[in-house]
Design a protein around this nucleic acid. Structure first.
Lengths: 345, 345
DNA sequence: TTGTATGCGTTATCAA
DNA sequence: TTGATAACGCATACAA
């Protein structure tokens, strides 16, 4: 490939046509229906394209086509590997459909989320996947009203005028606490908050349900609230746990996500507690760092990649299938028992 | 805002003009130079835009403008929080310049990297930031040859025909090992590989240099090679360390990144070693999970966000300043001492 | 202050 | 099989 004569702008089909001595339409045919072009002409055009270093202009294609060849995922917290794994699942599906994926990060801030959405609408993306800060935010309605295919990931909304994909969080809470009860724990902390997050509420609800079913006293399932689902908050929860009078102090903690659990684990180790002997810990999500912790964390596994793949499948169905009907896909979480609750033999 | 009469396509400036009873040019003026439009007309147009739910079509703008309003970052390993933090730094700078940022992930695979780059060129992004799998890959040259502003992040290339941003890895290796020598260690492992990664080589080189300067015997700095910079490889390196005859066994390990260090830490704890008493550990990057580990990890800190911000600054300079000259920005790493090398008092 | 006309690069339709 | 032409939505130069 020779040096493209870059006088500022990139070579266009027109330039290629001139170089190959054919018409613009023929170049387009070479690109889009090569079968219709004679071999000799096609080769000449292809050589010209290579010579000039021609690359299709996606904006022009889009303008012409009326829609872009891209999906978008707006994630809630780029610092949480969980969302990265979801994004990978989405990308796999997007790739298979020959679509690009734009990944945005709202960092939990509604105004950033809204800004990203604005941009994505300007880009005319084919569909938007989102894990929103607030599932009932007005700007989400907006997306649907514009007729843009739209799937909520890892969240359910009350309205339900769209698809969503998530695990059964109540069940997740149940299996976590059931596991702890199985291991003989009679006093358990639920670490998590804020309550404004639906999943926190549901995981707690599941925990309470199974606790009651086993006939255990309500006051022995202690809610230790946090302000966010972060490692720092997990540490601070650890301090509060340590501050409880010893007869109230739980022997196990179920954390609303793995970041909290990692923070709690760190506090426990620093405080000289043995995990799981003095304090057993269960997390939620089963991010890779859970298994990688010094004391590998027991966690409630979400099928992270599959959540993403399914969400992408749904948004594509909405985009292409006129008979699409909204679907609330629910996955079943599974407990992955590791050393933070099970002493090695 | 009333229901936009969606008969398939989104409303255009033309639709707005018709609705407002003005010409297309006036609508455009409202959008781009509102000062030039009379208040009364402007308000009428704005009402029409709101009524119709008009949103600019970015493709058309781009086509007209000849260039997009976006930067792109192709990262090497989305699963490593280090790159996420770099991306955040880039996004901060992009945001300030009112540009979008496309984040792609090559996952270390050159063919995925090339595919992403293809797409980005088609999108006519204003500039490409990349942490490449191979800094000398042919498709990188290609970017520069097309005249697309281009910055290498966290890597240096041999050719040097472009900007790059990285920390001084040799120095990083020095301060890590100097810290260990300070703490009295006389037999130290360098855990890292493959050697094809320039930074691994340089960190080792720095380690060796300072080791020699202190007059310590070469064979007491033991290279434990790994096949990748992952938690798993860190664990496996731990096993190999444990397998060394005790008089050869190091009392400390310097890992080429934090993921390795976390894996090594896990193995050590599982094997019943006390950290740092039996084995001190130093990582590299200082990702958040390093500080969050059960035994907080000492690590060589890279200014992750600042790497990103600087890279973005450079690519924007190349994009806008005709007198741009390529720059190799080098940052100074700093040791962050934590419990994995310093026993708590 | 507003309107009209042109072109960005691509694809598709239609004619040759 | 190839070529000429129109259209996508927007921004701008220029005319009114």
């Amino acid at each position: 490939m020779s040096q493209p004569s870059r006088n500022g702008r990139a070579p266009s089909v027109k330039d290629v046509a001139k170089a190959a001595g054919v018409s613009l339409g023929t170049v387009s045919n070479v690109l889009n229906r090569p079968a219709v072009v004679s071999t000799i002409t096609r080769e000449r055009v292809e050589r010209a394209m290579a010579d000039l270093g021609f690359v299709r202009n996606e904006s022009a294609r889009q303008l012409r086509a009326g829609t872009s060849r891209a999906l978008a995922y707006v994630m809630l917290d780029g610092g949480n590997p969980f969302f990265h794994d979801v994004a990978e699942g989405i990308e796999t599906a997007a790739e298979a459909a020959d679509l690009s994926l734009f990944v945005c990060n709202s960092n939990g801030r509604p105004e950033r989320e809204a800004k990203h959405i604005d941009r994505l609408i300007q880009q005319r993306v084919q569909g938007i996947l989102i894990t929103p800060a607030d599932p009932d935010a007005a700007h989400l309605e907006e997306i649907a009203r514009r007729g843009i295919p739209f799937v909520m990931v890892d969240r359910f909304s009350s309205s339900g005028g769209h698809c969503s994909v998530a695990v059964d969080d109540v069940l997740g809470g149940r299996i976590a606490v059931e596991h702890l009860i199985d291991r003989g724990h009679q006093r358990v902390a639920f670490v998590g908050g804020p309550a404004s997050i639906g999943q926190v509420r549901e995981r707690l609800q599941g925990a309470r349900a199974v606790w009651a079913e086993f006939g255990l006293p309500e006051e022995d399932l202690i809610h230790v609230p946090t302000e966010a689902l972060t490692v720092n908050e997990g540490r601070s929860a650890g301090e509060r746990l340590a501050g409880l009078p010893s007869r109230r102090r739980p022997t196990a903690a179920f954390c609303a996500n793995d970041l909290l659990a990692l923070g709690l684990l760190q506090h426990a180790v620093t405080a000289g507690l043995r995990v799981p002997d003095d304090l057993a810990i269960v997390g939620f999500d089963d991010i890779d760092f859970a298994a990688a912790a010094a004391v590998p964390l027991t966690s409630v596994r979400q099928p992270r990649q599959e959540l993403g793949r399914t969400a992408a499948r749904l948004v594509l169905d909405e985009a292409t299938n006129p008979e699409h009907i909204h679907e609330q896909a629910t996955f079943v979480p599974a407990l992955v028992a590791r050393a933070s609750t099970v002493r090695r033999s």
